[in-house]
């Protein structure tokens, strides 16, 4: 009886070994696609130029969906769902790379939807976020049922946004703790690109000075993001993104940012001390440069969401 059992086990083990060998080459692509699910150190993409700590430190709030969305709403332009990525597109994102990037894209979309109080469409975007997060094994940070309950009442939209942003922050910390800052970098890049894409679409309609300034100020951010992404240049998918950012960086060289140093001011408001920064920066960007930067942002975004 025991002999038969051992024999059967040996056959099964052998068959398993053979099938795993046979399937090795077929699975190679799938493994490459899923390698973002592994810590950087296991994928041969351990950051060389920046440590996990430094990357994590820098990328924590590179793109706040709240800030950009507020600025867009203040232009007075109407909400346009057509600007946003369609939640139905998530079925096209079969790799961890695409899922992480578009998780960022949808987070920026959520910020935009929230700032316009569009509770009627927010659930489908939350569901897209949840599905993409599940796809890169960080779905545990998004309590979809609670978020959905909050979304059903438009007066809860601020709390909903707070909870969503907090979930993103927790997810980001977790990814960095797990040495998966490559995934974190992609989420942040996706959110940043989408924020700029929405802002660019609004600039084209309104020529709003505030938004143009904000777009110009991204000269500082594009440099940081470029350095972070360069840590993963061995990955061919990252290479595409790095090349895009390199071209954007070149275009941003035409943007002039001047610093003016004054005296800091202290004011008291509702019993709280507020410091007004002494240094002030001014952005100079010509219409031609603005146009080329906007075109490049559109091109990058098209590649991200395709």
């Amino acid at each position: 009886m025991i002999r038969n059992l051992i024999f059967a086990l040996l056959i099964l083990t052998g068959a398993g070994f053979l099938s795993s060998c046979a399937g090795n080459s077929e699975n190679k692509n799938a493994e490459q696609e899923d390698e973002l699910a592994l810590p950087d150190s296991l994928t041969g993409e351990a950051p060389l130029k920046l440590s996990e700590e430094i990357i994590g430190d820098v990328i924590q709030n590179i793109s706040s969906p709240v800030e950009m969305a507020n600025l867009i709403k203040s232009t007075g332009v109407d909400f346009s769902q057509q600007i946003l990525n369609n939640p139905e597109n998530i079925s096209n994102y079969s790799t961890s790379f695409k899922r992480a990037l578009n998780l960022g894209v949808f987070s920026a979309g959520l910020g935009y939807i929230n700032s316009y109080d569009k509770s009627n469409i927010v659930v489908s975007y939350l569901l897209a976020v949840k599905n993409l997060a599940d796809g890169i094994r960080v779905g545990q940070f998004f309590d979809f049922e609670s978020l959905k309950r909050m979304a059903s009442n438009s007066s809860n939209l601020d709390s909903l946004m707070q909870m969503s942003v907090s979930s993103f922050n927790q997810m980001d910390s977790y990814l960095r703790q797990q040495n998966r800052s490559n995934v974190s970098a992609l989420v942040i890049t996706g959110a940043w690109v989408e924020g700029l894409y929405i802002a660019s679409s609004v600039i084209e309609k309104t020529n709003d000075e505030e938004l143009i300034n904000r777009l110009g100020e991204q000269k500082e951010i594009v440099d940081i993001l470029y350095i972070i992404l360069q840590n993963y240049e061995q990955n061919s998918s990252f290479k595409m993104l790095i090349d895009h950012l390199s071209e954007l960086k070149t275009l941003y060289k035409e943007v002039k940012i001047t610093k003016e140093v004054g005296e800091p001011k202290t004011i008291e408001q509702d019993g709280m001390l507020i410091i007004v920064q002494a240094e002030a920066s001014h952005v100079e960007i010509s219409p031609e440069t603005l146009g080329t930067i906007i075109e490049k942002i559109k091109e990058i975004r098209a590649d991200v969401v395709e």
Binding site: E217, E220, I224, M272, I274, I275, Q277, S281
Partner: peptide
């Protein structure tokens, strides 16, 4: 911390985008 006292909050008006 101001005048030897620790406050629970402060405000900051930012005039230059950076880290």
């Amino acid at each position: 911390k101001a005048q030897g006292k620790m406050y629970s909050a402060f405000g900051f008006v930012c005039r230059s985008t950076k880290v």
